[in-house]
Design a protein around this nucleic acid. Structure first.
Lengths: 232, 232
DNA sequence: GTGATCCGCTTACGGTGTAAATGCGTACCG
DNA sequence: CGGTACGCATTTACACCGTAAGCGGATCAC
């Protein structure tokens, strides 16, 4: 019935069929739900209703699987309508949208983001979290086209990466730290260490625990834009 | 004979003896040399001339081993004569010394640092890379004693952590990326991807590959200090 | 000497990544 | 329609992993 509907060879029959893309998606979803530690080839295979070894037809190794998961998650940037590939409203708008898009990804996948941050990049100048050549090129093009020189565009790329990586990694780790204790079995009593030796920490504990991530992010981003403007 | 020399029970006999501290040190050294992936209980035991299970008398699990390694490596801060626990020459000098001390640690242990950056902290407000209560308290005390208010000191702690984490993690990852290909077996030819689709990256490849880490670090640190000064 | 205690070793189990061989369902070709 | 080739999931196998449990010899207090 629907076999001839699509010209390209889709095979929507009831028979089980695997695709690299669905493996990577399932892997990302699995980490989102259970964390990286739990992700094994066998577990992921089970999630897809398949034996572990079947995955190897589409993924050369677990390491490549993880790289692929990072790539897939980061590709959500391209589908984000609020992130523009070209700076239609100036470079500052471009950078703000890009930064917010990446923050959205980090917050949507807090257990995957440490992987984005720490997977060894293919080249030393491919910096997390902006790990794809396409986006790096887009970034450099946007700044070059807005009057930045070569040196300035490269410096901006580095400063932008560093700012985002620090902020987002700390933010997702703080999220994880609040959830991690398996089920908050003993929520109240003596989980807290004795802080009497650290009077400032003790006194400021409440303020330290407040979540100011969003404001901090905006303020630091604002500051970054001002710094970059001086490179023009 | 020498038994009574030291009041605490040191046991310097020739017999093999294990200590938690030497396990952690050996673990850090092992990661420095072979990377985290290679570190297993059996390998680490072998390095110490001991069976794997012996380590469990001093370390409850591999996870705790990793936490301990992070702690030990970070403790080098306390032995660094250029880092002061109290701000004898003003808060800016204090922060600069602290930042440089942490950068020295990161560069001395590039394969351990990602662990420092990503191990889940015990509380959400214990932020890498300054992960110890003692140093957090020292930090807050230094700023409070220099005229910062409570809010400002906490904000400074957050900004400082974020800045350091981003910079240092990117720096050690760039180091690793240059070494990682197992022995640079095919150093010249077609390892490099085709960049013709990414003209800006291609044109700026040389500048992107330059190592400006040191200058960037100093400049960003300088900028951070200026920002923090406005909180006073 | 003699018992207790410490502490490294041995053994064992379930889980992991993955190489290699196996076998089944489908699609093409006559 | 019958055969055959092939694509792909499965099965089997192996070395290695973290670690629970019990063993046994050296060391200590008395």
């Amino acid at each position: 019935m629907s076999d001839s509907e699509s010209a390209v060879e889709t095979r929507p029959q009831g028979r089980r069929r695997l695709e690299r893309r669905m493996i990577l998606d399932a892997g990302a979803a699995f980490i989102d739900e259970h964390g990286l530690r739990q992700l094994s080839m066998r577990q992921l295979g089970a999630q897809l209703g398949v034996e572990a070894m079947s995955l190897y037809r589409y993924v050369p190794s677990r390491e490549d699987l993880l790289d692929g998961i990072v790539e897939v998650v980061l590709d959500e940037l391209s589908d984000d309508p609020d992130v523009h590939r070209v700076p239609t409203d100036g470079w500052q708008d471009y950078l703000v949208r890009l930064a917010h898009g990446l923050r959205r990804i980090a917050l949507a996948h807090p257990l995957v983001f440490p992987l984005v941050a720490t997977r060894p990049p293919e080249a030393p100048w491919i910096r997390p979290p902006l790990r794809s050549l396409r986006w790096i090129d887009s970034f450099l093009a946007a700044l070059k086209g807005s009057g930045f020189g070569d040196e300035a565009a490269v410096a901006a790329y580095r400063a932008f990466s560093s700012f985002l990586l620090g902020h987002l990694l700390l933010e997702v780790e703080a999220m994880g730290a609040e959830i991690s204790p398996v089920s908050t079995s003993e929520p109240s009593s003596e989980t807290s260490t004795d802080l009497s030796e650290y009077p400032h920490v003790e006194r400021l504990q409440e303020q330290l625990s407040e979540d100011r991530s969003a404001q901090e992010f905006e303020e630091s981003l604002e500051n970054l834009l001002e710094r970059l403007a001086t490179l023009l």
